[in-house]
Design a protein around this nucleic acid. Structure first.
Lengths: 344, 344
DNA sequence: CTGTTAGCGCTTTCAC
DNA sequence: GTGAAAGCGCTAACAG
C-alpha cells in the first residue's frame, strides 16, 4: 500500500538497455536470448520489483491460467477436501483458482458461471448443485472453455466427469453388514430424487439381494441431505418398534445428524446398533470405537479431475467433439469399531 | 465446449448498428444513451451471448474486480466459515475471489502473494501463516493494492486488521470456570510463540487472577496446534496424579484431539471433567450434553473485513498512509453442558 | 540473436 | 446523444 504505479515491461527494458521483446522472451524463456542480456534483464526486473500484468498477458495470449472451481456446498467436508486438493494441484501446475460456492443455489451457480466466462477461465471444474439443472444443461454444454463435472453427474449432459462408483459403494456396505449378520438394516438416504443417493441405495439393495436378503423398504428414510433431516430420520428409526440393528447414512451431513441422535438417545455403538457412513469427516475420531466407513478416493478424484481438465485445456478447442470421458473411481471399505456382529 | 471464438464488443456494435462506444456505455450504464439504442444493444448482446472480456476491461480500466483470499489453513473449520462468508459477501459486492491455501507454509504463501500481485487483485485478504513472517513483512507492506489481515496480526506490520479480542476470550473462559468453582484448570494452548495462544492464555490467567486464583503453570500444555498435539497433551493431563477438573482448549484442532482423548479414556463429560473450547466446529453437537464454548464472531469479522477492504479499494491509492485501522471484535461465551460445577 | 511493430478487447476522452 | 480514435501492457510475427 505504498509504491506508486507498478513498473511495466518498458521500464524493465529501459533499465536493462534492451527492447521489450527481449524482456518478454527472457522472462518467458521463449525464443533465444544471450546469457548476458538474460542476466541484465533479470537484474532489472528484480530491481524494479517487476510483476507481469496478468490481464495484459491474457489479452494478448488468449490464456488466463485461471481455473474456475464451482462448488455446490463448501460446508461438506468431502467437498472441502476436494477443494483443497484441487487448489493444491492446480497451483502446482501454475494455475490460479477462482473459488465459487453455490451453496446448493442454482441462481448463484448460474451467476458464478457467467462470471467465470467473463474472466475467460481456461477451464472450469464444477460440482453442480443437486437441483435446477433440468433445461439448464446448455449453460455448461455451451461453455467455450473445457469443463468437467466432479462427484455429481448431470443427466442429459455430455461432459467429462469424474465420480465415485456409487453402486459399488452401496454394495460394499451391504456385504460388510451381511458378513456381520445384520438383517434389519436401515438407510438414511437423503433425497430419493438425487442420483447419487439412488445409486448408493441401489448398490446396497442389490448387494443384499445377491446374498439372499431383502431390504425392508419401511426402513428407508427419505428426505433431504441436511444434518437436521439426518437427525430426524434417525430419531424415527431409533423409536421403531423393532429397532434396526444397523444404519447406513449416505453422506456427511446425514451421518452427523445420525450420530447426534444416537448420542442424545444414550445408545451405545456398536452394542445397541451398528453404524456405517460414507466419507471420513474430521470428527470420525470422536466415535468410539472408531467409525466404519465407505470412503470415496478424494485424492485420486482430484488428481484425475485436474489432469483430465488440463489435458483438455492444452488440446485447445480442438477436442472437436471428442466424446466426453466419464471416469468412475472405486470406493473402499474401512472397517473400524462402529459395526459389529449382530446380537444373537 | 462448442462455439468458436466469443463475440467481441465490435460484433455486438455491428449487429445493433451502433458504435462500440455506445455498446460500452449501455452495458456499463455509464454516459447517456437513448432508450432506443439501449434496447437494440441489449438485444444484440443477448442474441450473441456476449460476455465482456474481463482481462481487456481490466487492462483498460485498471481494476480487476478480483479479491485475493490467502488462507493459512483451510482445514480449520473456523477459517472455512470465514472463507464462506467472505466469498459470499464479495460476490454480493460484485467481486470474484481467488482462493489460495497456504497450508501454514510460508513458501506457498509467498508464491501466492506474488501471483495475486500479477493478477492485479484489487485487494488482498490475508490470514497469515503462523511462522515465517519475521523479516518478510515487506512482502505485505509493499503490496501496491490494499491488504487486510484477518484473525492473526503480524508483529511490526502496520496494516489494517480485523481480529478477535483474544485476551477477552481467555477472560470469558476464566470467569465461567471460576463461577463453577474450578480451581485445577488446565490449558492446551498450542505453541507458546504464537500471539493468539499467548493472548488467550493471558486472558485466562488474568481473569483467574482477578478472582484471586493462580493458574497452575504445570497444567499448561504447550506444543503445536495440531489435533495430534491436542490429543497427546490431553493424554498427559488425564494421567496426571491430580487430574484437572477443567480443560480449556484454545483452538479447533486442539479441542478435537482433546475430545478424542476423553472418548478413548472412557471418561464422561462433565462428570469426570469439564471442557471448554473455542469456536463452534460442526461436530460440537456430538458432545453430550452440548459443548460450552467461547465463540469468535466470524460473521461480523467477515463483514468488517470485506467492508473495510472495499472502502480502502474505493479510496484508491489515496489512503496516503492513512494509518492502519486495527479492529478488534468481542467474543461471546455460550454455556452448554460440557462444563459443570466442580465436585465438592 | 535482437528490435520494431501490430494488435488482443475494452473504456474513455473528445469532437461532432 | 453518438462515434472515432487512442491507448492499457503484453506477446508474437517479422525484419534486420
Amino acid at each position: 500500500m505504498s509504491a506508486g504505479p507498478l513498473p511495466t515491461i518498458h521500464e524493465v527494458a529501459r533499465l536493462a538497455g534492451v527492447s521489450v521483446a527481449t524482456v518478454s522472451k527472457t522472462l518467458n524463456r521463449s525464443g533465444k536470448v544471450s546469457e548476458l542480456l538474460q542476466a541484465r534483464v533479470n537484474a532489472a526486473a528484480r530491481k524494479l520489483g517487476y510483476a507481469p500484468h496478468a490481464s495484459a498477458r491474457s489479452l494478448r495470449s488468449g490464456a488466463t491460467r485461471i481455473l474456475g472451481l464451482l462448488v455446490a456446498d463448501l460446508a461438506n467436508p468431502y467437498f472441502l477436501k476436494l477443494v483443497e486438493s484441487i487448489e493444491w494441484l492446480s497451483s502446482a501446475a501454475g494455475y490460479s483458482v477462482i473459488l465459487c460456492n453455490s451453496a446448493e443455489d442454482p441462481g448463484r451457480e448460474e451467476r458464478h458461471l457467467a462470471m467465470l466466462l467473463s474472466q475467460r477461465a481456461d477451464g472450469v471444474i464444477v460440482i453442480p448443485t443437486r437441483r435446477g439443472w433440468s433445461g439448464r444443461q446448455a449453460a455448461l454444454a455451451d461453455l467455450p472453455m473445457p469443463g468437467i463435472l466432479v462427484d455429481r453427474r448431470i443427466e442429459g449432459l455430455d461432459l467429462d466427469s469424474v465420480t465415485t462408483d456409487n453402486v459399488a459403494l452401496g454394495r460394499l456396505a451391504a456385504e460388510h453388514l451381511d458378513d456381520l449378520g445384520h438383517r434389519r438394516i436401515a438407510v438414511i438416504m437423503g433425497s430419493p430424487e438425487h442420483q447419487i443417493a439412488r445409486h448408493r441405495l441401489d448398490g446396497l439393495r442389490s448387494g443384499l439381494a445377491s446374498r439372499g436378503i431383502t431390504l425392508d423398504e419401511r426402513l428407508i428414510e427419505k428426505d433431504n441431505f441436511s444434518e437436521a433431516a439426518g437427525h430426524a430420520a434417525a430419531m424415527r428409526l431409533l423409536r421403531h418398534a423393532q429397532r434396526p440393528t444397523a444404519i447406513f447414512a449416505t453422506n456427511n451431513h446425514l451421518s452427523l445428524g445420525l450420530l447426534r441422535a444416537i448420542a442424545e438417545s444414550g445408545l451405545t455403538i456398536p452394542d445397541d446398533l451398528s453404524v456405517i457412513a460414507v466419507d471420513e469427516p474430521p470428527w470420525a475420531g470422536l466415535v468410539r470405537p472408531g467409525m466404519t466407513i465407505v470412503t470415496q478416493p478424494s485424492e485420486a478424484i482430484a488428481q484425475t479431475t485436474v489432469s483430465t481438465l488440463l489435458s483438455r485445456v492444452s488440446e485447445g478447442r480442438s477436442g472437436v467433439e471428442g466424446e466426453a470421458r466419464s471416469i468412475q473411481l472405486q470406493p473402499a471399505l474401512v472397517v473400524r469399531g462402529s459395526t459389529a456382529a449382530v446380537r444373537t
